[in-house]
Amino acid sequence: MLINPHSRIGKDSDIAEGVALLREAGTEVLIHYLDDSTTAEELIENNHKDIQLVIIGGGDGTINSALPALYRHKLRFAILPMGTANDLARSLEISPDIDDAFRIIYENNYRKINLGIVNGRYFFNVAHIGLGVEVTKELTPDLKKKWGVFSYLKAIFSAFHNQKKFFVSIKSNGNNYRLRSIQLAVGSGRYYGGGNIIAEESEIDDGLLHLYSLYPQGFWQMLASAPLLRFGKHKQIRRTFTLASQDMEIVTAPTLEIHADGEHISHTPALFTVIPQALEVVCAAPPH
């Protein structure tokens, strides 16, 4: 079990009851608190021969940091949602209540999920270019602790006033697309940014990448589209481009940063691909 004490509620969460539940079921639980001296990837790498399940207590960024080792050793993992957005947990219908999350781990239902790759780096929710990157920069640890999931609304408002237009070229499925944009997102999962949906039809195990790009527009135009953007209804918005594919090559002018799962991971030009059913992750039981 890897706990990030710097995640939004990582330091304050009481895990004793949940750990006791697992130990009473005969599970040996080893607990590590992450700090500057070691990373989640290193801990998994050093212990992978002796473990069957990695439980990660933190936000989406903490989970992202563990992805290389999880995929390399094909380890099943579970989530204690202790971050701000907890979008992967949301995709898996895992309750934000820590005791409920432990019960889901105890029940041990799982599903296989997509794993996105951009320029050799893994991600599981959404990668951003443009406005979404500025939103990530506005999301300081203090802002997230103070505002919780509403910090994303405040960050979007601040970031929009600093956003810049850019040109983008997309190659996919044998087609070339050239457009102007203020925000481009590529999703391997379903949710991002505290519950926004990348595409109405997207699923975390559908084996596809889903892209949308917003053409340059004013703040009030974007605000009017916000409900449709929130629920992934991008195809109903006139000033939006959408695409679904297993691979995409993206070039921008100028060169821009790429952030995914709340972290800076690369820059353009970028090659996006997806590995279908790449990882096993514990999830809520399907409804009967």
Rank of each mutant, 00 (worst) to 15 (best):
E17R: 09
I105A: 08
F231I: 11
V251D: 13
V168M: 11
H267T: 14
D36Y: 12
L153Y: 10
Y212W: 06
A66I: 04
L2F: 04
I55P: 00
A16L: 08
D247E: 15
L228E: 05
I170G: 02
P81Y: 07
Y106L: 15
D206R: 01
A284M: 09
G194Q: 08
S181A: 13
N108R: 14
I265R: 08
L75A: 07
E28A: 14
P96L: 03
I265T: 04
D12C: 09
T62Q: 00
R121N: 14
S181C: 05
G10P: 01
E93S: 15
G232C: 08
T39K: 07
G148C: 03
S245E: 11
Y177P: 01
V251R: 06
H264C: 09
F231K: 14
P216F: 00
A89H: 03
S266A: 13
H32G: 07
T27A: 15
A284G: 11
I104Q: 13
N162K: 15
A101T: 10
L75V: 03
G116S: 08
N46A: 13
S169G: 11
I198A: 04
E45Q: 14
V168K: 01
Q217M: 12
P286S: 12
G195H: 08
K235D: 11
A20D: 15
L21G: 10
I170M: 02
F102W: 11
N108W: 10
